[in-house]
Design a protein around this nucleic acid. Sequence first.
DNA 1: ATACACGTTAGAGTTAACTCTAGGTCAAAT
DNA 2: ATTTGACCTAGAGTTAACTCTAACGTGTAT
Lengths: 125, 125
Amino acid sequence: MTYPDEVVTFTIGQVANLKKISTYTLRYYDEKGLLPKVMRDQNGTRHFTREDLQWLDMIKCLKNTGMTLEQIKYFVDSTYQGAKTLEQRIELLKNQVEKIKLTILEQQNYIEQINKKIKILTNEK
Amino acid sequence: MTYPDEVVTFTIGQVANLKKISTYTLRYYDEKGLLPKVMRDQNGTRHFTREDLQWLDMIKCLKNTGMTLEQIKYFVDSTYQGAKTLEQRIELLKNQVEKIKLTILEQQNYIEQINKKIKILTNEK
DNA sequence: ATACACGTTAGAGTTAACTCTAGGTCAAAT
DNA sequence: ATTTGACCTAGAGTTAACTCTAACGTGTAT
């Protein structure tokens, strides 16, 4: 039962299921400062909000596009420093998009390279 | 001075320079069985042929598209088992191309995700 | 009351892929 | 003859990102 002004939250196990990330990893990310807003109750138990889940999506996105956790932490920290880092964060994200575009080009080259090899092997038959 | 039937070879240091891979890494790859054909002279010094350099390109290609060194070794081993593994190797490479294509799609999704975030941040200005 | 499921921490262990160190050999240059 | 520089090996150390263990707390079900 949730009252109008109550915030829906999730335990670490629920988040693990929803986002397919182990509880170990979630605690590790929290420890590393990647999830600075996660609430705790009087027992010390974590309660993740929808906003925290969105952060997890952002972390996944940046991580899977080649950022280290250290770089992601830098972005998270910037965010919590507020408006004065806004330009910087926009720049960082634009930069990341450019990096991803380069990776895609690189991957396309690798496809061509492998296709050439496939052709050579096919001719050996 | 090289005679007609001499094979041009490179020392580990030359290969390191040419391919921008440290000598440490080259020895490590050799040790792991990723470069089974590298010749040695009477002193034990490695001599890399052009074919070895081509293998290094292949290793780089497979590694940078997500294969582990263990998986690459499997491919290398298959190759040296000769014609009977030809089909298998072609399959493996076709499979790798499909994986890369999926990665590219994934990366394109991440670009969209980041662009959305950039838009949100830009509207905060 | 006690068991069970789920949460907590601190700290140790794991894995892949390097990366380096120490101690050695050998060929060419001074 | 000795120094220099490039090579060698065995084995230790590093780094990132987990992954697990041990010992403990709490809330619900029987």
